[in-house]
Design a protein around this nucleic acid. Structure first.
Lengths: 271, 271
DNA sequence: ACCTGAACACCGTTCAAGT
DNA sequence: ACCTGAACACCGTTCAAGT
């Protein structure tokens, strides 16, 4: 409970010397809203990571009781949902250019990973949440249209969209787990970020060369090459594989149904 | 605390009528070992899913106190690690056949998914655990050798191995989350497993056709096609993409270093 | 050497009661 | 209508004390 000043503050046409101090301890605390809850969740997550967000820490940050949150959100899962939806609004979507559809697909993947990285904890929140918010839908729409522009089957386009979201999410999640493990290492001990790498390298080096000849190669290779190259390889393999997949039939009605051009869209909406 | 019989049981050359009852309430309960802990964890996970396993439930199942477990395992994470290592031993590894390397890679992915499915909860346990146990290493060795047999760059082979593990793990994890959500639905209510599907379909149907023309396609497509086809598409795209990647140079020394044949291996180990 | 009870510092969620 | 205190049923982990 915050301590109250003697002269209570009142809104209205009351002449009050508004000092900075009076501002700080505004007695009428703002009403709880979904908006304020998701804002607090994002702030907490940015400061303390995914595990820093709980119904209780959220209530604390909002200076209320945990039970109060349940008047505005169904449960913990919905908080994650709201956070993910809000972040997904920041996802840039390209104007499809049929000549560059593969490059544009790749760029979307890079943008998605950058978005996860800019919001630490978001990958973990996104895991197990179906992004049905407007941001997610806009991104999915763009990806599918890029695929269709490249002559990809609608079925393949849908699956590819799903598969890419899974990949970027998994990479981002893995990065978060690693980053967290490094930070969790005893503060006074060895906060050395390469400790894990060395441990891994040692393990590979210790393997029997006779039984696992290829593992020596893996060890050497994993020492070189950073996350960026690995990610680029991942999207390269997928986009190449998609491009190699059987293309869809190009019957006119498919054309209209599956990849309407802007004029067709406006015609349809007008009719 | 279990109730004790009057005549206390003693090991040694004491004549005791060993009835089935006496067997049942053996007073000397078996010593705690890592082995017994991982067995109990797997049993609990099979019966109640991943969330059914906790240090406390594990202790309960082993008829001991939570603190006792810490004499044998470092923490909760190590329990997951041990479970994953044990399961990975069941992963079948093929004898590489250079003519069928792509098919063999695909089959390994199918086997891995089948293994996750056979052990519900294992995908979640594997998430955030680097499978350095013998089973994991054996599988990785086999995958890398398949890639090398196909003329793939060592770098690409290593990355591909990683990428595939990520994919199968993510798919299996997603399946677990879905399965769990279905089971969690109020028992008395609608345990209907298609409820989520319908909800999703409704959502897609509700989207503005003008703004998201491609989403209608996605909705139609997602209604058809089961998880198996989707998974097959995923491995098809990846293996095709890998096959399309630049192949490694075939200088003799590379040949020996990177893909030693059995006779070379034994020669090296002897020297 | 191994195990235990009790405690510490947390969770998500519910519900009767307050204003 | 909105918020709260208190409770319920859990977590992982530590540590002094017991045998």
């Amino acid at each position: 409970m915050a301590e109250k000043r003697e002269r209570s503050y009142r809104a209205g046409p009351l002449r009050v010397r508004v000092t900075t101090e009076a501002r700080e301890e505004r007695p009428a605390k703002p009403r709880l809203t979904r908006e304020r809850i998701v804002e607090a969740a994002m702030r907490l997550m940015a400061e303390q990571g995914y595990d820093g967000v709980s119904m209780r820490s959220l209530a604390r940050a909002l200076d209320t009781a945990p039970a109060s949150l349940y008047a505005h959100v169904a449960n913990r899962e919905e908080v994650d949902q709201l956070v993910v939806d809000r972040i997904s609004h920041l996802m840039p979507v390209p104007e499809p250019d049929p000549d560059r559809w593969q490059d544009q697909l790749k760029q979307m993947m890079r943008d998605a990973l950058a978005l996860y990285r800019a919001h630490p904890g978001s990958a973990r929140a996104a895991m197990g949440v179906i992004p049905l918010g407007e941001g997610g839908v806009r991104a999915a729409e763009a990806m599918v249209r890029l695929c269709l522009a490249g002559g990809v089957t609608p079925q393949a386009a849908a699956w590819f969209c799903d598969l890419m979201a899974l990949y970027v999410g998994a990479i981002a999640y893995e990065e978060e787990v690693w980053a967290q493990r490094e930070n969790t290492t005893g503060a006074g001990e060895a906060p050395d970020p390469e400790a894990l790498d060395r441990q891994l390298a040692d393990h590979f080096a210790s393997l029997s060369r006779e039984r696992y000849p290829a593992m020596a190669v893996l060890a050497a290779v994993m020492a070189s090459g950073d996350g960026e190259e690995r990610f680029e390889f991942g999207i390269y393999v997928r986009v190449s594989g998609l491009a190699a997949a059987p293309t869809r039939s190009r019957r006119p009605d498919d054309e209209e149904l599956l990849a309407p051009r802007p004029d067709e869209v406006s015609r349809r909406s007008a009719g």
